[in-house]
């Protein structure tokens, strides 16, 4: 962490606006967090994170978007929702992590945990092409993008022998309709990114208030 001074007024109205946006997308109130640390204390992954989940909430509250989106935390969160379950202020921290990951990806932030992001991409590529997860293809795709060629070779071979990994993907009949879902979502996301870049107000997304 750099030790420079953070100028909070330089963040300006973007401060509360960022917290409000994250809250709206995650369906929770990011301002509610009172920094008790119960989330971090219960998080099984926090030992490996650069910012504790509590600190991520703090960064969001202060509008320190870059710090939050460049953190390893958002990628190491395993979505187990222990934090959400125990939060005394009913902040859906796990949903906030989802929101931040999605935001980091669509706004082109560099991934602090490249391998995690690569896994998600490889996994979804499989789903997008055949409609179902294709483990072997996913693992190969992942290995190609991360150059972790020899990792997990043992287990992979064992599973192949046990018949746990299929050599060929299962392709569903409606795979085109699944591909279509990905395509539509991608388009909507591009529109949203453009809208934000141009500072136009959000079309009503119906995302607020879900919880």
């Amino acid at each position: 962490m750099e030790m420079e001074v953070l100028n909070l007024t330089a963040v300006g109205p973007a401060g509360p606006a960022f917290a409000a946006q994250v809250g709206a997308e995650a369906g929770t109130n990011a301002f509610s967090c009172y920094q008790c640390g119960k989330c971090s204390a219960g998080c099984p992954l926090s030992y490996a994170m650069d910012y504790q989940p509590r600190q991520i909430m703090r960064l969001v509250q202060l509008g320190l978007k870059d710090e939050a989106l460049k953190s390893s935390t958002i990628w190491l969160c395993a979505s187990c929702a222990t934090c959400t379950t125990r939060c005394p202020r009913e902040v859906q921290i796990a949903a906030v992590m989802d929101t931040l990951r999605a935001m980091a990806r669509r706004e082109g932030y560099p991934y602090k945990e490249r391998s995690v992001a690569a896994f998600h991409r490889a996994f979804l590529n499989g789903v997008a092409s055949g409609g179902r997860a294709y483990e072997l293809g996913m693992i190969l795709g992942y290995k190609l993008s991360t150059f972790e060629m020899f990792k997990d070779i043992d287990l992979g071979l064992t599973w192949l022998r046990q018949g746990k990994l299929k050599l060929l993907p299962e392709r569903i009949k409606g795979s085109a309709s699944v591909r279509d879902i990905f395509e539509k979502v991608r388009k909507l996301e591009q529109e949203e990114v453009a809208r934000q870049r141009e500072g136009r107000p959000a079309a009503h997304e119906g995302m607020e208030g879900h919880s």
Binding site: R105, V178, M207
Partner: peptide
């Protein structure tokens, strides 16, 4: 089809 599991919600709501 696949539910998308963790990867989907880590990617796009």
């Amino acid at each position: 089809n696949c539910c998308g599991a963790t990867s989907a919600h880590a990617t796009n709501h």
